[in-house]
Design a protein around this nucleic acid. Structure first.
Lengths: 234, 234
DNA sequence: GCCCCAGTTAACTATCTGGTTAACTATTTG
DNA sequence: CAAATAGTTAACCAGATAGTTAACTGGGGC
C-alpha cells in the first residue's frame, strides 16, 4: 500500500526536500476510513485490513494510534457524536419563537440524518451491542447536547404564550422528532421493498418532511388550525 | 455436540424401539437458534458454529437445510416477517371506530416490538445491507400486510365521519406509528446512556405509550380536545 | 555529526470461520 | 428384505482475520 507521494503534504521547512510523517494527518485518515468502513459493514463486518488500505496507511498504524478494533470503533463513535453536537450547537433555537423553533428542530434533525447516514448506521450498530462502547466513554457523556435543555425552555415559553399544550414533555418530544426522521431513513431499504414503493425520491422525501412537521406541531399547538402546514409561523 | 436422547421424540411406530430423526424438528431448532444468533450479533457477527451448538445439531445440517449462511439469514428474516404478519392478521381494526382503530394500532405496534426485539435487530441488520436479502425473497413480497389497506379504509371512514383531517395519508401515518415505537426501543441503549436516564423502566414506558398515542391522535383528529388522552373514544 | 524517538514498514502468526468430504444410519419404498 | 433416500456425523480444509514482531527512517535537539 505505497502512498502516492504527490498527494502528501509538501510543506518544506527551509531547505529540505522532505514531506512525509504527519501524525495528525495519518490519524485523521485512519479515523475517516474507519468511519466509512464501520458505517458500511458494522463492527463485526468491518475489516481492519480494508480500513488500512482505504486510509492509505499500514495496518500497524491503527493499533499504534487506537489500540484495537473496538477502541477504533469507539473513537469513530465519539467523532460522530462530536460532529452532531457541533452542528446542534450552531442552531440558535432560543432566538426563535416557540413554534418556529420546533419546526426548525424538525427540519434540522431531518437534514442532519439525511446528510450523515453514517451516524444512523453507527448508532444502530452500537445499539446492537447495547451501547457497551458508549457506556465506557467519558468523552461522549461529557458532550451533552444543549438540545434537551433548550427544548425545555422552548416548551415552557410555548406554554406561557398559551400556544402549546401544557402536557408537552421535552424529552418525549425530542425522542419523537428524532424517531420520525431516523426510522424513515434508517429503514428506507426494507420499507421501500415491503411497500413496493420508492421512498428515496425527492417527492417522497418532501411528503415525509411535511407530514412530520404536521404531526409534531399538531401534538403541541393548542389549536391546529392556527398553524397551517405550509406557513412558517413566528 | 451429542444430543441428549432423553429430550428427543419417543413416538414409537408399532413395534420398533426407535426414536431419533425428525427432520422438521431439526430444521425448526436450527431456525430458532439462527434467529437468536442473528438477532444478537447481526449477520456478520453471527457464527455458524454457535448456531449449530445452540440448535443441538451438526453444523453440516445448516448447510443441508439452508444452503449457506446468507440463505439461512434470509430464512430467519422470512420467519420474522411471517410472524408479524400473522399477528397483524389477527387485529380486527375494521371492526372498530376510526379513532379507536388507530389507537389500537399504536398499541399493537408497541406491544409487538416490545415482545419481539429480534424483529427490530434483524430489520436493522437487513437495512445495513440495503435490504439485499429481502429483495431476493419472493416469499416476503407475497406476504403483504393488510395493515396499509385497512388503514386507508380507516382514514377514509374518519374523514367521512368528520373526525379526521382530510390531509391524513395512510402510508405516512403507518410509518410514523411504527417509527415512534421502533426508534425508542431500537435505540433505547444509546438514548438511555446519552440522556443518563433509564428508559427501560415501566414508568418510562408508560409515559412513552401515552405520548405516542397523544401525538398520533392529535395529528389526525380535527379537534384535539374531543379526544382526551386517557379516554378511549368509540 | 549524531542520537533518539515518534512514526512507519513488511512479514509473520495463531486462531477462527464458512464451507466441504465422505462415511454412516435410520426410514421409506418397491 | 434390499435398494434407494433422507438425515446425521466427525474430521478436515483453505482462506481470512485481528493482532504482533522487529527492523527501519527521518528529523529535531544537542
Amino acid at each position: 500500500m505505497p502512498r502516492d507521494s504527490t498527494t502528501r503534504k509538501v510543506v518544506r521547512k527551509t531547505p529540505a526536500p522532505a514531506f512525509v510523517r504527519d501524525a495528525d494527518a495519518s490519524r485523521a485518515r485512519i479515523l475517516d476510513a474507519a468511519t466509512a468502513e464501520f458505517a458500511a459493514f458494522g463492527l463485526a463486518g468491518a475489516r481492519v485490513d480494508r480500513i488500512a488500505v482505504a486510509a492509505d496507511a499500514n495496518k500497524r498504524m491503527l493499533y499504534y494510534y487506537f489500540g484495537n478494533k473496538e477502541a477504533l470503533f469507539l473513537a469513530v463513535l465519539e467523532g460522530a457524536y462530536a460532529r452532531i453536537r457541533a452542528a446542534e450547537g450552531e442552531l440558535r433555537l432560543l432566538d426563535l419563537g416557540p413554534d418556529l423553533a420546533v419546526r426548525r428542530l424538525v427540519e434540522f434533525t431531518w437534514d442532519y440524518y439525511l446528510a450523515h447516514p453514517e451516524f444512523i448506521t453507527l448508532l444502530n450498530n452500537e445499539n446492537l451491542y447495547h451501547a457497551k462502547h458508549l457506556k465506557q466513554s467519558a468523552r461522549i457523556r461529557a458532550m451533552n447536547s444543549p438540545l434537551i435543555a433548550n427544548l425545555r425552555t422552548i416548551v415552557r415559553r410555548g406554554n406561557e404564550a398559551g400556544i402549546f399544550h401544557a402536557s408537552a414533555d421535552a424529552l418525549e418530544l425530542y425522542v419523537s422528532i428524532a424517531a420520525l426522521s431516523y426510522f424513515y431513513l434508517s429503514n428506507i431499504a426494507t420499507l421501500s421493498t415491503v411497500f413496493a414503493r420508492d421512498l428515496t425520491t425527492p417527492s417522497a422525501r418532501r411528503k415525509r418532511v411535511a407530514h412530520m412537521q404536521h404531526m409534531v406541531m399538531a401534538s403541541l399547538v393548542v389549536r391546529e388550525s392556527d398553524v397551517p402546514r405550509s406557513r412558517k409561523a413566528t
